[in-house]
Amino acid sequence: MWRRSPVDGGLELCLVHRPKYDDWSWPKGKLKPGEEPLAAALREVREETGHTAAPGAELPTQHYWANGRPKQVRYWAAEAGPGAFTPTKEVDRILWLSPPAARDRLTHPRDRTLVDALLDALHGT
């Protein structure tokens, strides 16, 4: 999820802190039975950040192993809409960061490639 800074108009990306893993990542979650991936992505953004979002281009799908099982996570560039964050046991903090700061803050190297993919999508390349 991205937005224009209310302070200077610069691009900001939203990262979430998950206390269970003590990591910084993109909002993400699991599909509910019968749920379409894009609908799940928008639902998870809303649940984890408190913001609605307008979907844009699909970003690269991430494939990795977690707890001995293969995982596939699909992402979209999504512009932040109205909302307000409320901490939960799943996500206790969010940060709005410039792209370089977001790249540095992301815990998992695989998540850093999505910063460039998002920037490419926003610049129409």
Rank of each mutant, 00 (worst) to 15 (best):
H123L: 15
G56C: 05
P99H: 12
A77P: 01
P33G: 08
N67R: 15
T113V: 08
P82T: 14
A101E: 11
K89T: 01
R69V: 15
K20T: 02
A40P: 00
L118K: 15
G34W: 07
P27V: 03
P99M: 09
A77D: 12
P70F: 08
E35P: 09
L38Q: 15
G10E: 14
A39Q: 05
G50K: 07
G29Q: 05
W24K: 10
L114C: 13
P109G: 09
A57H: 03
R103N: 10
K30R: 04
T49L: 00
V7F: 04
A78S: 11
T107W: 05
Y21P: 02
R43W: 01
Y64T: 09
G83E: 03
D22L: 06
L11P: 01
D116A: 07
D92G: 12
P27E: 04
R110A: 00
W96K: 15
R110E: 10
A41Q: 02
G29K: 06
A53R: 11
L122D: 08
Y64M: 01
Q72T: 14
G29P: 00
H123D: 15
G34S: 12
D120M: 07
G29N: 07
P33W: 12
D8Q: 13
L11M: 08
W96C: 12
T61E: 14
L119D: 06
K71L: 13
A39N: 03
A40G: 11
V16E: 15
A53Q: 14
G124W: 06
L42G: 13
L59F: 10
Y75I: 09
L11F: 00
S98Q: 15
D8T: 05
E48M: 09
T125R: 15
L106K: 08
E12K: 11
D8F: 09
P70E: 08
T49V: 02
L122K: 12
D22T: 05
E58Y: 00
P109F: 00
E36V: 03
D116H: 07
W65I: 06
W2G: 09
P70N: 06
E90G: 03
F85W: 08
A84Q: 04
E12L: 10
W2Y: 11
D23V: 01
N67I: 06
D23E: 03
P6E: 15
E90N: 02
R46I: 00
A53T: 10
A102H: 04
D92T: 06
L106Q: 13
G29D: 01
